[in-house]
């Protein structure tokens, strides 16, 4: 028996917004630790990893590990039937062929009950090695969304460069070029803060497909800040924290430098 009740049902709605255009369907692995889902886009350029720990839920029960093979277009259609302030409960049997979704309005005057049929998804799980990143940058998620959108007008590649105290995003194309630099904020302790941490103060610069960065920013509403981690010759990590008990992370393979 699996049952998970999420008071802040909007979290699930927002998380799926950040997933559904990248991964058509995925195995949502439920265990006593929580719910996780990993998947690649059809071109195998980006890996998306969602983690919802049991503490994120106000009620969580998972007697045996359960795999929910979900079609994300269908899942998204059903979640759109939930209001932003609804409480969402997911329920499934031990070896399920369907999953039950229950939406309760905040004042408990409306309940909606849905059943989604599960599919067998033959999907390999990739191992993500521990990496010491050369640079870790935190920026307001709305700012990152805007930069990715603005630079996409110039070409299909965005170069992210980190040097001491500064992160620079640039793009070049037929119409011209653009360069947007964010300087590290002073001692401001709020979500507007930009922080740049570097290992060994070595500048780091990598090129990425703007299309994928724009897909990732669909998760903007999950968190006020986004963390970017870079390492030469490694995938970029773009992380949105879901409170203290969850995260949506994207790993994006770099483009080959010309």
């Amino acid at each position: 028996m699996f049952e998970a009740r999420l008071l802040q049902g909007s979290i699930l709605k927002k998380a799926l917004e950040g997933i559904r255009e990248l991964i058509t369907s995925g195995n949502w692995e439920c265990s006593s630790a929580g719910i996780s889902m990993q998947g690649m886009d059809p071109s195998h350029v980006a890996l998306t990893v969602l983690m919802l720990q049991n503490d994120l839920f106000d009620q969580f029960r998972c007697d045996r590990n359960v795999t929910l093979g979900l079609n994300h277009a269908t899942f998204s259609k059903i979640l759109k039937c939930a209001a932003n302030d609804d409480i969402i409960t997911l329920k499934a049997e031990d070896q399920p062929d369907e999953c039950n979704l229950l939406f309760q309005s905040a004042n408990d005057d409306k309940t909606s009950d849905f059943i989604i049929k599960l599919t067998d998804i033959d999907q390999e799980t990739l191992g993500i090695p521990d990496t010491e990143y050369a640079a870790t940058v935190k920026v307001p998620s709305v700012e990152f969304q805007r930069i990715c959108r603005d630079l996409s007008q110039f070409g299909d590649t965005i170069i992210i460069s980190v040097k001491k105290g500064c992160v620079e995003f640039s793009g070049t194309g037929e119409i011209g070029s653009a360069k947007i630099a964010l300087k590290e904020s002073g001692n401001v302790d709020d979500d507007e803060k930009v922080s740049v941490e570097m290992d060994k103060d070595t500048p780091c610069s990598l090129s990425f497909a703007s299309r994928y960065l724009n897909y990732f920013t669909k998760a903007t509403s999950l968190s006020d800040t986004v963390t970017l981690q870079l390492c030469p010759e490694h995938p970029l990590v773009v992380s949105y924290d879901i409170g203290d008990n969850g995260s949506l992370k994207y790993y994006l393979a770099p483009k080959i430098e010309e």
């Binding site: 690649m40 071109s43 195998h44 350029v45 980006a46 890996l47 390999e124 799980t125 990739l126 191992g127 993500i128 090695p129 497909a209 490694h234 995938p235 790993y251 994006l252 393979a253 770099p254 483009k255 080959i256 010309e258």
Partner: peptide, 14 residues
Amino acid sequence: MPGQRSITSFFSSP
């Protein structure tokens, strides 16, 4: 996609 590396060249199946 030209010039694009694959994520599977970095991460492998355990």
